[in-house]
Amino acid sequence: MEGKEFALHDVVQMKKPHPCGDNRWRIIRMGMDIRIKCLGCNHSVMIPRKQFEKKMKKILKKAEE
């Protein structure tokens, strides 16, 4: 998976938008599962890492170091 280097607190774009209409998500937990939070409505979702890597489109903003 080249080009899919993501880190905690990165803002990512997923392939499908959230039902609220926003397509920006912040990574708030990493491990075997990834928890992401919608930046439109603050709803959070936990999905397996493999599924997240498949559904992530691109990184919009890298986390501040």
Score class of each variant (00 low, 15 high):
residue 2 E to R: 14
residue 2 E to P: 12
residue 2 E to G: 12
residue 3 G to F: 14
residue 3 G to H: 13
residue 4 K to C: 06
residue 4 K to L: 13
residue 4 K to T: 10
residue 4 K to R: 14
residue 5 E to S: 09
residue 7 A to E: 14
residue 8 L to C: 12
residue 11 V to S: 01
residue 11 V to L: 01
residue 12 V to P: 10
residue 12 V to D: 06
residue 13 Q to S: 12
residue 14 M to H: 00
residue 14 M to I: 06
residue 15 K to T: 06
residue 15 K to W: 08
residue 15 K to I: 10
residue 15 K to P: 07
residue 16 K to L: 08
residue 16 K to R: 05
residue 17 P to G: 02
residue 18 H to C: 11
residue 18 H to R: 00
residue 18 H to V: 04
residue 19 P to I: 03
residue 20 C to L: 11
residue 21 G to W: 06
residue 21 G to R: 04
residue 21 G to F: 05
residue 22 D to W: 03
residue 22 D to G: 14
residue 22 D to S: 14
residue 23 N to W: 01
residue 24 R to L: 04
residue 25 W to C: 04
residue 26 R to K: 15
residue 26 R to F: 00
residue 26 R to L: 07
residue 27 I to A: 05
residue 30 M to I: 05
residue 31 G to V: 12
residue 31 G to N: 14
residue 32 M to Q: 12
residue 32 M to I: 08
residue 32 M to L: 13
residue 33 D to Q: 14
residue 34 I to E: 09
residue 36 I to C: 01
residue 36 I to E: 03
residue 38 C to N: 03
residue 38 C to T: 02
residue 39 L to R: 11
residue 40 G to S: 07
residue 40 G to F: 00
residue 41 C to H: 09
residue 41 C to K: 08
residue 42 N to A: 08
residue 43 H to K: 13
residue 43 H to G: 12
residue 44 S to T: 09
residue 45 V to F: 08
residue 47 I to H: 09
residue 48 P to G: 15
residue 49 R to W: 11
residue 49 R to L: 14
residue 50 K to I: 10
residue 51 Q to R: 01
residue 52 F to S: 01
residue 52 F to I: 00
residue 52 F to K: 00
residue 53 E to C: 10
residue 53 E to W: 03
residue 53 E to P: 06
residue 54 K to F: 03
residue 54 K to S: 12
residue 54 K to P: 00
residue 55 K to M: 14
residue 55 K to S: 13
residue 55 K to R: 13
residue 56 M to N: 02
residue 56 M to H: 04
residue 56 M to V: 12
residue 57 K to P: 03
residue 57 K to T: 02
residue 58 K to A: 08
residue 58 K to N: 07
residue 59 I to N: 08
residue 59 I to A: 05
residue 60 L to W: 11
residue 60 L to I: 15
residue 61 K to H: 13
residue 62 K to W: 13
residue 62 K to H: 14
residue 62 K to V: 15
residue 62 K to A: 10
residue 63 A to E: 08
residue 63 A to I: 05
residue 63 A to W: 13
residue 64 E to C: 07
residue 65 E to M: 10
residue 65 E to A: 07
